[in-house]
Amino acid sequence: MTFPSGEHASEHAGELLSALLDDELDVDTAQAVDRHVGRCPECRRELTDIDEARRSLREAAPVIAPPGVITGVVTRRRRATRRGTTLGFAAAAAAAVISLVFADPATVGSSTAQVGAGQKAEQEARSSRDRPSNIRRAELLAAAGNAAAADESRPSFADRAEEAVRDLLEFFG
């Protein structure tokens, strides 16, 4: 893009001002817009306005989520998992990860307990009549997205699941 285009030497910079602030212009155009702003009070004023709007968003502090907004989902999920109904270990693992990623810093320390809860859920699932289905395992392996979790030679499903949780945690580290 060239600015200003030859026959419209008097045109204003317009949306190129935002692009300038966002570092989205090539060097030549950026220099041309800069030069124009230097001699055009109207564009200078607009650049200041745009910059203020931009900074009001970028510099605004993040809004703190009200308590329960994030953890509510995790809690409901774990309860469902404990009932051994529709959610398998994959969900428990994912819930553990989600709670680690999103929960209050104060609760992050309980990661071991969460993994432990996951193991318990997996034991319950195993002791129930329907063993973890291939679909559940596929979910887990897909969630882990990691070759280590697909290693069939490992002795126990729980071990692999724990490993998958660690992989997910690294993903989100």
Binding site: G14, S18, D22, E46, I50, E52, A53, L57
Partner: peptide, 16 residues
């Protein structure tokens, strides 16, 4: 996108 962002910011500035 460039045009929407620029117009959006211009309106935002007036609102704020």
């Amino acid at each position: 996108v460039r045009s929407r962002i620029h117009r959006g910011r211009a309106q935002l500035r007036r609102k704020l």
